[in-house]
Design a protein around this nucleic acid. Sequence first.
DNA 1: CCATATAGTTTGATAAGTTAATAATTGGGG
DNA 2: CCCCAATTATTAACTTATCAAACTATATGG
Lengths: 171, 171
Amino acid sequence: MPTSLQACAAELLDSVLLVMQAIRVKMRSRRTPELTIPQFRALIFINRLPGGTLSELAENVGLTNPSMSKMIEGLVVKGLVRRESSARDRRRVKLTLTTRGLGLLKQARQSSQEALARRLGALPIRERQALMKSLRDLARVFSLEEAPPPARGAKPSARPPAPVSSRRSGR
Amino acid sequence: MPTSLQACAAELLDSVLLVMQAIRVKMRSRRTPELTIPQFRALIFINRLPGGTLSELAENVGLTNPSMSKMIEGLVVKGLVRRESSARDRRRVKLTLTTRGLGLLKQARQSSQEALARRLGALPIRERQALMKSLRDLARVFSLEEAPPPARGAKPSARPPAPVSSRRSGR
DNA sequence: CCATATAGTTTGATAAGTTAATAATTGGGG
DNA sequence: CCCCAATTATTAACTTATCAAACTATATGG
């Protein structure tokens, strides 16, 4: 029976698609959606790796550089993202969130989170705790980088500080 | 301490975004992606509710009817979807998957699933089983419909047969 | 039988995506 | 030191996707 792993993957796929849809519905529900899902993902990335470059972001979100350049332009105009050229290599562009961008990200997160919380409320606390534990395992397994040959020197870039990440606006 | 639920929702949000990205990466990885994510979602919906109408599908995927109409047109041309007018109400369009559409859906599922399975392999079997259990709970909670006033008559549409759903090409 | 409502498509405008070309910068030999 | 290939991001030109509004066809109720 080689399928235990497959079965688990299947279950995961179904669940993720379901939950993802709930998130989409929620984000659409605003009268004028302030953030599309790709934009949301961009803000998340920038928040997680402040000072990251446009190419990295494009790669992560799955757009070409020109598209991402355009998108960033929009976000800069809206005052959500700061774009400054790197001192070390002036071809590069360093992206960071503005205060407003961070605020909007938090708000979007909060909003999605509430929608999920409402559904999760239907789960007995016992099972919710088990779920939480499993989700942590899941996140750990899926946040492993794709074996980037670490090379020698410089910064290992293995810095997973998620300034907003999970916790509430906890102080 | 009102946050247990919130914390769980936060964890869920993070995890889902992570896993979703893995799925996107996988789907993009093909030389010529045969299916975009919205298309994938459309096929999933049609597979789950064969004979469903265009409006229902549009609602589910989060597009307007015109957009969905066009997308379906494309899928029909590609021979993945069959579109026939309902006998009872000829304004309605009934959507079903062709054999080819079903095949492609299975293949896309399989492909995504494999990518997930690879990651899940890093999880000790003990925790994988716990995860599986929790995912089932999760799917149950999130597949509850949003209390649509059922109105009188017709079919209750409460038929959740997932012809492809999880299992492998079992048998 | 007409009025009104509903389901889907067509149309025209706009936004978002792509590839190819361009500009700016870096770094490595002659 | 200087040129030249490589890189990073942006601009340009074009294609595709999406939406709102108008339109077609069908259903339903008075």
